[in-house]
Amino acid sequence: MAFEFKILEKENINLIIPLVYKLNDYKVSEAVLEQRFNEMIGQNYECAVIYDGDKLVGVCGLWYCTRHYSGRSVEPDHVFIDDAYRGQGLGKQFFEWIYNYVSGKGFEAMELNTYVSNYQSHKFYFNEGFKILGYHFIKKL
């Protein structure tokens, strides 16, 4: 199977909504996701995707910044691969593509958040060499 990894064109950002909707534990509505992604695409954000032919099967948002402790950094966000494509090494291939892509842009570190209850992702990220640095806190205003 030949997959295509690429950065999604900004005007096509709403194509990822159905996949990201499946990821959300707290179920933000698709309408709210659409509004937020249309705002995010104008910030320091890109969206990497996986296509199997014409079918969108994976997504990973990429946030770019410079942090005092890690330098030029990228944060993968809302990583999701369609259930039917899991367990085939596709996540590893996708992240290898992402590492090469962001390294080519001059970024030197990657850090991320994952849901506490998403045990499969914890195993994946440990296997990819990520280390736990701290806790992520949120307070709704």
Rank of each mutant, 00 (worst) to 15 (best):
N38S: 09
G42H: 12
H78E: 15
G61T: 04
Y101H: 15
K92Q: 11
I13M: 04
Y119P: 01
D82H: 09
D83I: 05
F3H: 12
E34M: 10
W63T: 03
E9T: 01
E75G: 14
I138R: 12
D77K: 08
K55T: 13
Y21F: 15
F94N: 01
L8V: 02
I132S: 09
E108M: 06
V20W: 07
L90A: 05
S121A: 15
S117V: 02
P18V: 05
W63K: 07
M40E: 13
F37Q: 07
L56Q: 02
V28Q: 11
E11Y: 07
F107T: 01
K123T: 13
S70H: 01
V59H: 04
E34D: 11
M40D: 13
F3T: 01
S117H: 11
L33S: 00
Y69W: 14
E39D: 14
N118E: 04
Q43C: 14
K105N: 04
Y64W: 08
K139T: 02
G134A: 13
K140C: 10
E108P: 00
T114S: 15
S29G: 03
Y51L: 11
I50L: 02
F80C: 07
D54A: 14
D25I: 04
Y115H: 11
I13A: 05
F126I: 10
S117M: 09
R67P: 01
L112S: 07
Y45W: 14
C47Q: 11
G91E: 05
N118D: 10
Q88W: 05
C47V: 12
Y69M: 14
K27I: 05
W97P: 00
G71T: 02
